[in-house]
Design a protein around this nucleic acid. Structure first.
Length: 426
DNA sequence: CGGCGTTAG
DNA sequence: TATTCTAACGCCG
């Protein structure tokens, strides 16, 4: 039988910040989204103060003052780098590893004798703590959905010491455990599905596990059937061990301040296009379709509202930033309306194909030589920026002032990815 | 195949 | 003053 472990870093972003700031231990800490707008990670102490995930920063201001909560702007290059080290540490324990998200991985532990699973889990925890410096929780089970559930359980019961295995429980204990879990806490069961289940008097994980599969298939489709089977201990979600190129690449951001002019909107869209194109090249892909969206501030009930998107199919797949910016600008010009105050814009690249496969277009506008030249140019720019920092070379269309860019007042240094920010001991 | 709905972190 | 960002998948027409 398959043995799957889910290794989940505790409060990952906060834990990463704590690696470099010993003074944050034991304190309530939150990490904020871009524009320092929302809470996107909370330390255990912050959770104890009832700060909700996603809470707008301005809503927790009195709590911050009262309890001395430390607020930190998100630093995704730092989190990404620590995540890579985390995954590397996990790879020491199994060749079959799915990097599920920035702070979680599924590992196949079928090779470990059943009675040694918990001890093995403890070794993983200790290793990650020693090599990376972050605490993790581990749930072990015969399926992904159950492993996810076990990880949630372990986080709420200190006596498990960070590792719990479904295999250590007898039937009665499994039933008891599943009866104490609400359906909405199951991985893959969201708000809409929960409501449907509640109407059928299904409230707990045990009730869902024992539900009628025909009704489930009719109501929650194949996704629901898969979840039920997994709850029964039948693995039907295989581990995805290879990283597939993204099928869509999005770059969007709320502005640091409202934008009214077409010129500034064009600059912002040019910036987002170049970021998206960079991600595209990083995974060695080309895109053949580009969409742009803009909208006003949905939360400002007094302001006139406007939201629109449009897209273009490109004559041939490309990752050449200037060509993409030119198309993006056509899109913005099409949807821009003066008299509105824009809060957010974004660029979405789709119809993504591998770089190697270049298909000449039907109308003969495609020149392979030109394509090669453009690829070499972008490669040079990427290399320069990789070495000297991402803002070293950029296209003029982005603008020079960019004072509409997001605010991040409380960002930690890039300790591990920028020489300027490396720690010094005095 | 595109658009929509749902879920996730 | 202030409400994130990104991605995947399944269904339906």
């Amino acid at each position: 039988m398959t043995v799957i472990a889910l290794i989940d870093a505790d409060n990952f972003y906060v834990s990463v910040e704590r690696i470099f700031r010993a003074d944050l231990q034991g304190k309530p800490v939150v990490v904020l989204s871009s524009n320092d707008a929302n809470v996107i990670a909370r330390s255990a102490e912050a959770k104890a103060l009832k700060i909700q995930m996603g809470a707008p920063a301005f809503q927790i201001r009195s709590l911050v003052k009262e309890h001395g909560i430390v607020q930190i702007s998100s630093n995704f290059s730092l989190y990404g780098d620590v995540s890579a080290r985390f995954m590397k540490a996990l790879a020491l324990f199994t060749p079959v590893l799915e990097e599920y998200s920035i702070d979680e991985a599924f590992a196949d532990l079928s090779h470990v004798p059943r009675e040694q699973l918990r001890e093995y889990g403890q070794r993983i925890r200790a290793t990650v703590m020693q090599y990376v410096g972050i605490p993790v929780s581990i749930g072990i089970a015969p399926s992904k959905v159950l492993a996810k559930l076990m990880t949630e359980v372990v986080k709420h019961h200190a006596d498990y010491e960070g590792v719990v295995s479904y295999f250590q429980l007898n039937d009665q204990e499994r039933d008891d455990l599943l009866s104490r879990i609400s359906v909405e806490d199951i991985w893959g069961v969201g708000q809409k599905s929960s409501t449907k289940l509640h109407l059928k008097n299904i409230f707990t994980a045990k009730q869902l596990r024992d539900a009628d599969l025909v009704w489930i298939r009719r109501t929650l489709k194949v996704v629901g059937v898969r979840i039920v089977l997994e709850l029964r201990g039948m693995a039907c979600m295989p581990l995805e061990t290879t990283t597939k190129p993204k099928q869509g690449i999005m770059s969007s951001q709320s502005f640091g301040r409202p934008i009214e002019s077409l010129k500034e909107l064009e600059e912002a869209v040019a910036l987002y296009t170049s970021i998206a194109a960079m991600k595209l090249r990083k995974q060695h892909s080309l895109a053949a379709h580009l969409s742009v969206f803009v909208h006003t501030n949905f939360f400002d009930s007094l302001a006139p509202q406007y939201a629109r998107s449009t897209s273009r199919t490109l004559p041939f797949p490309t990752a050449f930033t200037p060509d993409l910016i030119a198309v993006a600008h056509m899109c913005v010009q099409e949807i821009y309306l003066s008299g509105y105050t824009f809060k957010k814009a974004g660029v979405y690249l789709t119809h993504i194909t591998p770089q190697q496969v270049v298909q000449a277009d039907l109308f003969g506008m495609f020149s392979f030589d030109e394509h090669e030249r453009k690829q070499r140019l972008m490669h040079c720019i990427d290399e320069v920026n990789r070495f000297w920092g991402r803002d070293t070379l950029f296209f003029g269309a982005i603008g020079l002032t960019r004072d509409w860019q997001m605010k991040q007042a409380r960002k930690s240094p890039n300790y591990t990815t920028n020489w300027e920010d490396i720690m010094s001991i005095s």
